[in-house]
Amino acid sequence: MGNDYFNDPEFRELIRQYLDFLQNALPEVKANLEDKNYLEVQKFGHNMKGSGGGYGLDEFTDIGAQIERAAMIPDHVVLEGLLTSFEKKLEETVQEFKA
């Protein structure tokens, strides 16, 4: 997060809202995976691929791209691993952001 605008309270509020959104969306994404609703999982990955980098969260963009690709196959096992990694990364980012 090296860019000047990351310290702007207005932009930090946008990041906070985005992290909240992801935290709230994650249980539904996991439920969709459990139900083998791969299309919804793919959409989630696609959207995160597009939006993550806009908040300076490039790793989210990378994970989003991986989720999208795995859901297109679909590879259930890989998706489970990706969502677990993402959940961990999201929690770390939230803690880092609050610090």
């Binding site: 605008y5 207005e10 932009f11 946008l14 809202q17 985005y18 959104f21 959207n47 597009g50 939006s51 806009g54 908040y55």
Partner: peptide, 12 residues
Amino acid sequence: DDHYFIAPIKYH
């Protein structure tokens, strides 16, 4: 139609 994609773009 993706609000979270647009928010930082609108800001910039």
